[in-house]
């Protein structure tokens, strides 16, 4: 059962790593977002520390949108999605595989853009890197779960990239708030982190419990 999910995820991730299509476009998109932020705000060193949590999360969120636009692209191009649904695997497993593939790619991008952001914005918080990565990763679980469902939902829709952003961004408001506050808490010596982590975990649990079920309803004929 889980093997099938891993195979779907692995096919997506390995295929992408070979062609580096999604990964590199996500990465370069993230870099251009960072350049836009730098040009728009020109933060000095003190401001950069204050802005870093928001920068990281905003970049992550926008970059996720790029990745999500491609979750079902391979299947769409060769019309294999219906074939995938016909395979003798439960829908939840298909969803789990797709989610896992997207999660791995997104985590990989986050791993790359965190040091990049810190270098580009001159923030000296290298000792906090594991904690920040942990928070980003925790939020990404629910974010990619919801995102994969919405990607399935907008499959074949007109102007789907815009639609995906319109649907995903308001629903991720709790994630953005708690993620930004948690990273800010880590960066400050007397910051509060625990309640925000709790909120992130609630967000993750709700979405990871709901989305496979919702996917089943969505693709049912």
């Amino acid at each position: 059962m889980l093997k099938a999910a891993y195979r779907i995820a692995w096919k997506d991730v390995a295929g992408d790593l070979r062609r580096r299509a999604t990964l590199s476009s996500m990465l370069f998109f993230a870099i251009s977002v960072l350049v836009v932020f730098q040009a728009a705000f020109e933060p000095d060193r003190k401001e950069a520390v204050r802005l870093l949590p928001g920068l990281l999360w905003a970049t992550t969120l926008f970059t996720t949108l790029v990745g999500l636009g491609r979750v079902f692209q391979a299947e769409e191009e060769d019309g294999a999605f219906e074939g995938l649904l016909l395979a003798s695997v439960p829908r939840g497993v298909i969803f789990f595989g797709k989610w896992l593939g997207n999660l791995l790619l997104t985590l990989l991008v986050e791993l790359l853009i965190l040091p990049l952001t810190m270098v580009l914005f001159n923030v000296d918080a290298w000792t906090q890197v594991p904690a920040i990565l942990g928070i980003l990763g925790l939020g990404t679980l629910g974010l990619t779960g919801l995102g994969t469902l919405l990607a399935a939902m907008t499959r074949g829709a007109r102007s789907r990239e815009t639609l995906l952003a319109l649907l995903l961004l308001p629903l991720t408001a709790p994630l953005l708030i708690s993620g930004v506050q948690a990273v800010a808490g880590v960066l400050q010596p007397d910051g509060v982190v625990a309640p925000w982590l709790k909120l992130l975990i609630i967000f993750d649990l709700v979405y990871l419990a709901m989305t496979p079920w919702a996917f089943g309803w969505l693709v049912e004929e």
Binding site: L171, A173, P174, I177, S178, L199, I202, V206
Partner: peptide, 8 residues
Amino acid sequence: IIHYSVVW
């Protein structure tokens, strides 16, 4: 969830 996160 949105409401409580915004309130906090």
